[in-house]
Amino acid sequence: MAAMVITITSGKGGVGKTTATANLGVALALLGKRVVVVDSDIGLRNLDVAMGLENRIVYDIVDVTEGYCRLRQALIRDKRVSELYLLPAAQTRDKTAVSPEDMVRLCDQMRDDFNFVLIDSPAGIEQGFRNAIAPADEVLIVTTPEVPAVRDADRIIGLIEAEEKGPASLIINRLKPEMVRYGNMLTTADVIEILAIDLIGIIPEDEAIIVSMNKGIPIALDDANRASLAFHNIARRLLGEEVPFLDIREMPNLIERFVRFIRQG
C-alpha cells in the first residue's frame, strides 16, 4: 500500500476545507479505502469537531513530532466507518511547532499503512499552509463562487504552481442553483474560466451540512443527501473513475427562457 497524500486548501477561510476533508475521508473509507485525515491547523483545530471525535483526543500531531508519543497512539479511529482515522492538531500550540519537514516525515510514516492521507490545511498562505502542502502528492482547492474566495484560490494556485506541487484541482462549494439561475452568482463555468484549473467537484449549498457539522456527523454518512452524493462523486473521481457532474440546475426555467428570448428578439 502506498498512500496518496492529498492536501485540501483554499487560501480564504470559511469556504469549507474542513467540511470537504471530513466528508472526503468518510466517502473514501466507505469505498473500502484505508484513510487518515490530518488536521494541520495547529492552534485552531476543527476537523475533530467536524467528525465528532473531539472528546476522544489524547495525543495530537505535535506530541508525535516532538516524540511524546508514537504515531499510532495519536490516531483516533472513527467508530462509524471502518478504516477511517483522525490525526488531530494541537490546540494549545502554534504553527511553528511543526515544520514542513516534520509533515513530510510524518506522511512518509503513514504511506505504508493507508491508501489516502488527507490533510486539512489552515487558511492563509503562511507556515501552516506551507506545512500542509509540503507532503502533498495532489492538491484540492476549495472555493465558493464568490469574488474574495476565487481571488484567494487564484493566489493559492499560483503558489502551488511555484512550488511545483500538484496537480491541483478545484472543488466549488456552496453553489446556489437558484442564485446562479437568476444571474446573481458566478457559475461553475465562470470560475473555471477565471482560474483555468481542472474541476473535480461541485457541492451544492445545503443546510443539512450545517446540521451535520453541529452534530459532528459528516454529511457523507447520509446516503440520501445531494451534497453527500457530491462528496462521494469526488471520492470516486479521486480513485480514477469517470463520474458525470451532478445536475445542479443552472439552466434557466421556462419563463426565464421566454424573457431572454424576447429581450434578444
Partner: peptide
C-alpha cells in the same frame, strides 16, 4: 476507558 485509542494511554505529558 475507551476502545478507540490505538494504544493504551500513558500519562506523560
Amino acid at each position: 476507558a475507551e476502545e478507540d485509542f490505538a494504544e493504551p494511554f500513558v500519562p506523560l505529558r
